[in-house]
């Protein structure tokens, strides 16, 4: 279980997170919603060990992730708006490079498989620079699942994706869900988030404003609740 305790992050002299508490069970698909500036991306960055909190901790099975971040990163995959790809390298070279960083056995076969899965096998030896946004994002998906992550973090992964690429991403998420991997998804699309997730957390001003299982509420009820919370944020 991943346990987030009193996570606080100050960004540009302002609180991005102010004492955030959250629990994520293994095999759960958690969807994080919330208005801009609620601290969603800051939370994902800290969870991905890219950033450190000013206060608070994240415990995985009782030990802090900041004690041995490299070991924790081995279990992680991250898909964000940025693709993390090298534009001057080909698709295959990008994946081979990252496979080496993750010390994956038989990188060539693994990379070939992945390129097929994301539908880029025919462009595998072209430079990423020449790819469309959708194709780059496909490759970014391949990169993120290269190490078969136990925990997949998705920070608004659907932005800029065309129809088929979004479908591909949804398929991957569903596939990982059935494989009982842990997924943390940030999205603006409430409907999509509700349908994919087992559990939903709404962030507001660096705290969790609402935490509930998707089974406990219908989608319509949830939409109303969300609007209530977000509008309440503007008027106090």
């Amino acid at each position: 279980m991943i346990k987030v305790q009193q996570l606080t992050k100050i960004y540009n002299k302002q609180f991005a997170l102010r004492g955030l508490d959250l629990e994520i069970n293994y095999g759960q698909c958690l969807c994080i919603l919330g208005p801009n500036g609620a601290g969603k991306s800051t939370f994902i960055r800290i969870l991905a060990t890219l950033s450190r909190p000013n206060r608070g901790d994240i415990l995985v099975d009782g030990t802090s992730v900041f004690a041995a971040p490299a070991a924790f990163r081995r279990k992680l995959g991250l898909i964000a708006h940025a693709t993390f790809l090298y534009p001057e390298l080909t698709a295959r070279e990008n994946l081979i490079f990252y496979a080496a960083l993750y010390q994956i056995a038989n990188p060539d076969t693994r990379v070939d498989d992945l390129l097929k899965t994301v539908g880029l096998a025919h462009r595998s030896d072209d430079r990423v620079r020449t790819f469309s946004r959708g194709m780059q994002q496909r490759l970014a998906i391949a990169r993120a699942i290269l190490n078969e992550p136990e925990i997949l973090l998705l920070d608004e992964p659907y932005t800029g994706l065309d129809q088929s690429a979004s479908q591909l991403l949804t398929d991957r998420i569903v596939e990982l869900k059935t494989a009982k991997r842990t997924i943390v998804l940030i999205t603006h699309n409430i409907q999509q988030g509700y349908q994919l997730a087992d559990k939903i957390a709404i962030f507001r001003e660096g705290r969790v404003a609402l935490e509930c299982d998707t089974g406990a509420m219908s989608e319509l009820e949830f939409q109303q609740k969300y609007n209530e919370i977000v509008t309440a944020g503007g008027k106090n």
Binding site: L76, L101, R143
Partner: peptide, 14 residues
């Protein structure tokens, strides 16, 4: 500039 630095920082290495 390309953001690929995060890819390296995410890798399970010291």
């Amino acid at each position: 500039d390309t953001g690929s630095i995060h890819g390296i920082l995410l890798a399970p290495i010291d």
